[in-house]
């Protein structure tokens, strides 16, 4: 084996290792940016954003609407739900807690949507849910 061939091999190995490290770094940083922010919309307007990963203690607050309409929101570490509402069907309450962006909580009569936005998704998670 000549000296020149040895240099070529050494160079190739360095490039290969560097490229592989870059690929791994891209994949790792992709996962790290993943988080869950609950965006609350009232009649299409964003009224509040809550980073669910930053929540340490549970709390509730009320969204007031027209003609005495209201929805009580429960925020827990990693989860959000509606626990009380003035709407007649209470479907928003029965939708339970959500923790990912697959399915929003909706209160059609009061015009409320709670959608969790995630920075990232992987192939293993659901992309949507029919209902």
């Amino acid at each position: 084996m000549t000296k020149k061939v040895k240099y070529i091999i050494a160079g190739a190995v360095v490039i290969a290792v560097t490229a592989a490290l870059i690929a791994v770094w891209i994949l790792i940083t992709q996962e790290k940016v993943s988080n869950a922010v609950a965006n609350i919309y009232q009649n299409g307007t964003l009224i509040r954003s809550i980073d669910l990963e930053a929540v340490e203690e549970s709390y509730t607050f009320q969204i007031e609407g027209e003609n005495g309409a209201y929805n009580t929101v429960l925020v827990e570490p990693g989860y959000i739900s509606i626990t009380d509402a003035s709407c007649p069907d209470k479907v928003c309450i029965s939708q339970g807690k959500i923790s990912d962006g697959v399915l929003p909580i909706t209160c059609l009569p009061n015009g409320i949507v709670i959608q969790i936005e995630t920075q990232n998704s992987t192939s293993s998670t659901l992309d949507g849910m029919t209902r």
């Binding site: 939708q95 339970g96 949507g128 029919t130």
Partner: peptide, 13 residues
């Protein structure tokens, strides 16, 4: 392919 969940009628989340 897109992964589409079919809602569980007993637990809609």
């Amino acid at each position: 392919p897109w992964g589409i969940g079919i809602t569980d009628p007993n637990d809609t989340t």
